[in-house]
Amino acid sequence: MKFKFLLLLSLMPLMVSAQKAYFVDGYHGGVYGHYPKWQTQFMVDKITEHQDWRINLEIEPETWDSVKVYDPEAYKAFQEAMTQAGFAERIDIVNPSYAQSYLFNISGESIIRQFEQEI
């Protein structure tokens, strides 16, 4: 038993690989929040420039509505990029009502129904 344990312990560095760490900063809130006006075009530019990047976006509809008004060119560029092969696969859109729910003004049943998945 001791031999098996020592063998396993000696092989652990070979079985475990280091993971890359990523830093993410987020914005939300549209015109009432702190999503920078340059951010949409920046995302298009950077994910185009860095083909190995993947991004995860949790941006509520209010922000997209705001971008569409104050930076329609960037909004259209992002919208078009999302239809291009090689770009859309590297972007994960997360539902903001799931990731950043506002649960203070609803009942327990509403909270449960918000997270219920239809099959």
Rank of each mutant, 00 (worst) to 15 (best):
G26W: 12
T63D: 08
F42S: 15
K76Y: 00
Q51C: 15
I55T: 05
A81M: 07
D45Y: 06
K4D: 06
Q51N: 15
Q84N: 05
G29Q: 07
L8F: 11
G108I: 14
A18Y: 10
G33F: 01
Y32W: 13
S107T: 13
Q41G: 15
I59E: 00
Y70F: 10
M1R: 11
F3S: 02
G86P: 05
Q84K: 08
I91M: 14
K76M: 05
R113A: 09
Q39G: 12
Q114C: 09
G33C: 06
Y22A: 03
M12D: 01
E89W: 00
I106S: 02
Y70C: 07
L14Q: 13
V67I: 14
E49L: 11
Y70Q: 05
M12P: 00
E49D: 10
I111T: 06
Q84I: 07
I91Y: 01
E60T: 00
R113L: 14
A85H: 12
T63G: 01
Q114W: 09
I111A: 07
S97G: 04
K76W: 04
F5M: 12
R90G: 04
G29S: 02
S10K: 05
E116K: 15
V67F: 03
M15R: 01
Y75F: 15
S107W: 12
P72M: 05
G108V: 14
K20E: 07
R54V: 02
D65T: 14
F5Y: 15
V67K: 11
Q84M: 04
A85M: 13
S110F: 15
Y98A: 15
T48N: 08
I47M: 06
T40M: 12
V31H: 02
D65L: 13
N105F: 04
P96H: 01
Q41N: 11
D92L: 14
D65E: 10
W64V: 00
F5T: 02
D25E: 13
T83E: 13
P72L: 03
K37L: 15
T40V: 07
L8Q: 04
I55M: 08
K46Y: 12
A18K: 06
I93E: 00
K76R: 02
Y22C: 04
G29D: 01
I93P: 08
I55H: 04
V31A: 01
A18E: 11
Y102P: 02
E58H: 07
G29R: 02
S110I: 04
W38G: 05
E73N: 01
S97C: 13
E118F: 04
Y22T: 12
I119Y: 13
F42W: 10
